[in-house]
């Protein structure tokens, strides 16, 4: 029964990962990361159900809190970059190197 949820979780994770790798727009990349996080949440909740304890659910809450915090900071950075450079492409922001 839980297998379906896990497969769905894996699919969502894979879609998110591919999105992170192939999309240039920072907002989309960001959304894909969120998708991966939520795929993980789904897996956690599924395992919680399967094992009959609450550990996975607690972790899922943690993930949500972290994700929310991350969205705040991440979006702020993206907006600032967009304002200064008129571009939200992750490939254009490559100064932090070597």
């Amino acid at each position: 029964m839980t297998t379906h949820y896990l497969v769905l979780s894996a699919l969502l994770f894979a879609i998110g990962a591919v999105g992170v790798l192939v999309r240039r727009n920072a907002i989309v990349v960001f959304m894909c990361v969120e998708l991966m996080l939520n795929a993980c949440n789904l897996a956690f909740v599924t395992f919680a159900r399967q094992h009959g304890n609450l550990d996975g659910q607690i972790i899922a809450f943690f993930v949500m809190v972290v994700a929310a915090a991350e969205v705040v900071v991440g979006l702020a950075i993206i907006v600032t970059i967009f304002r200064t450079r008129r571009s939200a492409s992750v490939d254009d922001a490559n100064l932090l190197k070597y």
Binding site: A17, L21, R24, V29, D91, N94, K97, Y98
Partner: peptide, 17 residues
């Protein structure tokens, strides 16, 4: 070795994957 740090976020993502 430091040349690996290209600055492209997506290449980092690939290596993480």
């Amino acid at each position: 070795l430091r040349r690996i740090q290209t600055g492209f976020a997506r290449s980092y993502a690939l290596s993480i994957l």
